[in-house]
Amino acid sequence: MTVSTETFDLRRRVFGDVIEFYAPGLKRWETSEWRPANPRRFLPVSVTGTACALQCDHCQANVLKGMISARAADDLYHLARRLWDEGTDGLLISGGSTRSGGVPLARHLAAIARIKRELPMRVVVHSGVVAPEIAEGLAEAGVDGVMLDIIGADETIRDVYHLDLTTADFERSLACLADQGLRIIPHIVIGLHYGRFLGEWTALEMIARHPVSTLILVVLMPLVGTPMAGIDPPPADEVVDFFALARSTMPDTKINLGCGRPMGSMKQELDRGAIDVGLNGIAYPADGAIAYARERGLQPRLYEFCCSLTWAGEGYREVTIR
């Protein structure tokens, strides 16, 4: 009795046989199949250092610890210039959130615009919830893409993110960004509500209503020292089922499995599942995932930048597996 993988055929029809693997310099990483040649090619920058007003239950600013800190007085352009000189050609500009749910990017828009004008760097920002003025500013600055988490349950926004907002605010953010013609890269954190599914389906429906460039699916990683420490992430087969639902719901949109997901055997299972149900790409693939993709008749391509930059294949040197 064979296992059905109906959406795999769909992805081949729409996207062909290429599958993309990504390994930006967001963390030290290598597998038996791939050691990135330039781990500094794409780097994350936090405009708030390690500070975050929200202290969401699943993160508590842990994710900021791995980022390059740009403090308030720093000029983002000069930081970018220095990184460029050291071999970086792409930046994720992120940071902690303000109490309104957005990353404080306003004061950095001029610097971002200058980066885009004077340095041949890709710049993607993690915006969080955005107001129309910020969306306009990001468009004028010429950012290459805007990432934001889309949460489909008011309960999760309130309990996990401690935000006094609703799902409508997240959908409005999508609309603002779309109005400006920006490349939108929404994220869904599967299992965000303390390890169980809650708002994921609504988040997917919200995203499907807007013109997005790439959908990134990540899976809750319960972190030590946070209120979600010790919580089990949702079962892998249910997560893979959600991958398939996303694929089926948005058959023409690139969907990647992002870098946030539990390690170990679950990661193996998720990566195989992502390949089986027809996702377009995987960040930091588990050992053996690239070979498995080949077994399924796909052609792997490897990129040393963020999986949000699905349009940026041209101009980037393709890396071969060692």
Binding site: V3, S4, E6, D237, D241
Partner: peptide, 23 residues
């Protein structure tokens, strides 16, 4: 789906629960 397994879950009364696609 169309006669092919999508998922199988086996549970016991003492709380064991295993979900898989691998029969």
């Amino acid at each position: 789906r169309e006669g092919r397994v999508r998922s199988v879950r086996v549970c016991t009364d003492d709380g064991v629960s295993v979900a898989t696609r691998n029969v």
